[in-house]
């Protein structure tokens, strides 16, 4: 596995990549694990339920021991990486990148082999075993094309999950937090706000 990742990494360095136009900005301290983003994603994209296909997922990770305990919440989806490994390992070339950097799966070409899932560090690739196809977050590209933000970001009640132009976002936060795989391999289009509350 380590060898494969390295090989892909080298490939990705050589391969040409389109720069991200849009990206996510996530503020973990503001997330309350409400999962409104997950629900909005399901509804707008009409994602099937009951087969554990989730384009976006809020993860809760407990740390420490009672009573010195804390919980980290991370709402994550596909990060539309600038050096996406999924795209490079797909044996049928079903994964492609739009001009604006959004990574999409061409359904007709996908054979549901799941190789992309093995190489995605962020568990973004979802196997729909009923249809034998891989699915994932499209950043709601049809909404973006219509001038609307992705569905998940429209409902977030605490503004923990934000989205916008990558040029505006990429310097607003850090590229790495605990429980988020190191970004240097794939260059995910996400930043994390780690500043403390003003108080």
């Amino acid at each position: 596995m380590a060898f494969c990742v390295l090989a892909v990494f080298r490939l990705s360095v050589k391969g040409e990549s389109l720069m991200a136009t849009y990206g996510w900005l996530f503020d973990p301290k503001r997330c309350i694990d409400c999962k409104a983003c997950e629900a909005a994603c399901k509804q707008w994209n009409g994602v099937e339920t009951g087969i554990d296909v989730r384009y976006r997922r809020v993860r809760a990770v407990e740390r420490g021991e009672f009573p010195q305990v804390s919980v980290q919440y991370l709402s994550l989806s596909c990060n539309h990486c600038e050096a996406a490994t999924c795209l490079r390992v797909c044996p049928t070339k079903a994964i492609f990148r739009r001009q604006d950097g959004i990574v999409l799966i061409q359904e007709e070409t996908c054979v549901g082999c799941g190789l992309c899932a093995k190489f995605c560090p962020y568990q973004a690739m979802q196997l729909n075993w009923q249809r034998r196809k891989m699915e994932k977050c499209t950043m709601c590209s049809p909404r973006i094309d219509a001038g609307l933000p992705p569905a998940c970001t429209t409902v977030c009640p605490t503004r923990a999950l934000m989205w916008g132009e990558w040029d505006q976002i990429k310097d607003q936060g850090v590229d790495q937090v605990e429980n988020f795989s190191p970004p240097m391999l794939t260059k995910p289009a996400i930043r994390f706000v780690t500043t403390e509350w003003k108080g």
């Binding site: 409400c34 999962k35 409104a36 997950e38 629900a39 909005a40 399901k42 509804q43 569905a151 429209t154 409902v155 977030c156 009640p157 605490t158 503004r159």
Partner: peptide
């Protein structure tokens, strides 16, 4: 989705509302 300008949702809604 939420309603901008709404004092209650502040433009957001919860998972129950969204579903």
């Amino acid at each position: 989705q939420g309603l901008p300008g709404d004092q209650h949702g502040n433009g957001g809604i919860c998972a129950k509302g969204a579903s």
